[in-house]
């Protein structure tokens, strides 16, 4: 991997570890579900809204590094593996450059953000329920390591989101028509 190669040239004598760049604390819960304890991790913000997670120095550092590496390879393809120095994280500027092309958000989060922007709070709550089911099913499948099923889960999740939007569309259209009707005083302006 480019990133691994890029940061493999850490100076002699400095400790190195596998680390991740994550989007939110939710992703930490995903790591916890994989058996990686939070107290064994070093967690830092990168100055934007992401977290950098690495193995903390201690008796379990070796096993945590192995678990993080396995998680990247098998179970958590959303995370970006890097090599970094611990306990400091001196490579933030380079990380930002890498992050733009490599990190993807949890599925459905952009759609949900769009729904939050466009819809009323009540409609947003409805879309939220759909996306939460989708994301939890996705996490469950990720945890099982069933990468082929992930595609099915993605397709089903996105389909259910758009199907929900389609089911709501006639209702919003009717509401808009009623609003326009009442705003124009019950119909088109009369010609004298």
């Amino acid at each position: 991997m480019n990133t691994l190669r890029r940061f493999s040239g850490v100076k002699p004598g400095q400790r190195r570890s596998v680390a991740f760049v994550l989007h939110s604390r939710t992703d930490l819960d995903v790591l916890a579900a994989m058996g990686i304890k939070r107290e064994d991790l070093v967690i830092r913000g990168d100055g934007e809204r992401n977290l950098i997670v690495g193995a903390a120095d201690g008796p379990r550092a070796g096993s945590t590094v192995r678990m993080l590496r396995d998680a990247t390879r098998n179970k958590y393809p959303l995370a970006v593996p890097i090599l970094m120095e611990l306990p400091d994280v001196p490579i933030l500027s380079e990380l930002r450059e890498e992050r733009s092309s490599r990190i993807s958000r949890p599925p459905g989060s952009r759609l949900l953000a769009a729904a939050e922007f466009c819809c009323s709070p009540k409609t947003y709550r409805l879309f939220q329920s759909v996306v939460v089911d989708f994301q939890l099913e996705y996490c469950e499948t990720l945890g099982q390591g069933r990468t082929r099923k992930l595609w099915m889960v993605r397709i089903r999740g996105y389909w259910s989101f758009w199907r929900t939007a389609l089911a709501l569309f006639p209702v919003s259209l009717a509401r808009l028509a009623v609003r326009l009707w009442s705003a124009t005083g019950g119909g088109l302006p009369r010609s004298t």
């Binding site: 579900a33 996306v131 939460v132 089911d133 994301q135």
Partner: peptide, 9 residues
Amino acid sequence: PGQPGLPRR
């Protein structure tokens, strides 16, 4: 407990 992400309805 242990569930990632937003709460379920």
